[in-house]
Nucleic acid binder design. Structure first.
Lengths: 247, 247
DNA sequence: ACCTGAACACCGTTCAAGT
DNA sequence: ACCTGAACACCGTTCAAGT
């Protein structure tokens, strides 16, 4: 039984490489595609190697270890963030840049948890942070206030926030569902009140009815408006005796 | 070679149980202590079992799997948060409660990343969120605004934030250090400018000179002040045409 | 009926043997 | 010199064998 050849003559002396040779770029892009399709929890050095048709050890030629692979995947996503718009007011420019980051992450939902788990910042990541700080500084915001603003943004500078309303799966049986609802309303009255208001469409408390984009922009604007207000007031760091840092 | 006995006679028929029998409580507390001492990355079902002097399978009697073990560890930490102070203004009360959460987490630095990785909320966690919402609502803040405030707080409601300034280890050799500094100043001028200001003490950009407690309170106050301002203005959710959710 | 050792199906990474 | 299969030291979890 002979395997049909693609195009090579039968007497070629050197074996044809199965694919274009690996390089760091190809490894990282394949890892991103793999995580997009199969989820980050399915990504292992072994599974990625298999997808690329190579032996696991071959990957270690291009990334030192799995941590560096994940660093590189973050680089790919962060490197795809749209550049800043020139000429806008600093608040609008920061807002736009962060929403651009959010858009870049939108297609790679694994990136949120991977970014949070990084301990080393790659050049691409530092570049993004540097450019974001640059927007504040160019707008006249003091280095000190810019520093605190970056801390206040936290992971939100990357365009995402950790979801804080884990929604327990409601049982399919409607009777059990209303029983669960009644119990929840008794034990957690405020959660149920707020969840009910949040998802007026179907009225179910666990409907996951939150408009994530709205929530993100709401919090981002509260932070940026707060920083803007402090900037207008000529804020400087208060002395050690004061009650609240941003009073 | 005989092992000296503690106190038992030599002819006791039934073997003495090595320790007090396991229960869920003891398993969780041991896991917390283990993570405190050895770090969360060293905690495995096997290492925890060894610490307790039992076979790994014995743990599965008290927790269904490792995820549930981690859920339980979060319960221990969250359950230790001081109760809310009665009678204070809602903003002060929320502030105090979140700083109490921060204090409970302070001795368990693994808890930040474990909380972020949870997908199911345990009753203790729901109870904390419910009581925090209750403070807003009792203060007259609308359910809608409270909802968005909780989203805006995000993981900050648990008293921590993801650090966003990963500090690359500066080389010990002073010559290499200043070379690295020069290169960083050229590539990331704004980061270096801000890092230099942030750590005036030693002047080194990678000194990790941030006052984390100050940064946390700063951001928390920006958020709470922003919510308070919207509350005073009688904020309601804007229509679909408007530019910014919290303008 | 209860407990648990061995096994299973994985990991990331090392290393020496083979070409 | 280069590549890679097997091995190492782990995981979480299952399961059947032993008492």
């Amino acid at each position: 039984m002979t395997v049909p050849d693609d195009d090579a003559g039968p007497s070629r002396p050197t074996p044809i490489p199965r694919r274009t040779p690996l390089n760091r770029e190809r490894v990282l892009r394949a890892a991103v595609v793999f995580a997009d399709r199969s989820g980050i929890e399915a990504l292992s050095m072994r599974s990625l190697a298999q997808q690329l048709g190579v032996v696991p050890m071959a990957l270690y030629k291009h990334v030192a270890n799995k941590e560096e692979l994940l660093d590189g995947m973050v680089e790919v996503v962060v490197g795809a963030i749209d550049p800043p718009t020139r000429g806008a007011h600093w608040k609008a420019a920061v807002r736009q840049r962060i929403l651009a980051a959010r858009q870049s992450l939108a297609h790679h939902c694994w990136a949120c948890q991977v970014i949070q788990s990084r301990t080393h910042a790659s050049p691409v990541v530092l570049e993004y942070m540097d450019s974001l700080m640059g927007i504040f500084l160019a707008g006249g915001v003091s280095a000190e206030l810019t520093h605190h603003a970056m801390h206040a943004l936290g992971t939100r500078m990357w365009g995402f926030t950790q979801e804080v309303f884990p929604t327990p799966e409601p049982p399919a049986d409607p009777e059990a569902r209303s029983a669960m609802f009644a119990q929840a309303a008794a034990q957690y009255p405020h959660i149920v009140e707020i969840a009910t208001i949040a998802s007026r469409d179907d009225g179910s408390p666990a409907g996951g009815g939150c408009d994530e984009q709205f929530e993100f922009e709401f919090a981002l604007d509260v932070l940026l408006n707060g920083v803007e207000r402090l900037h207008r007031l000529g804020w400087t760091r208060p002395g050690p005796g004061s009650r609240s840092p941003s009073g």
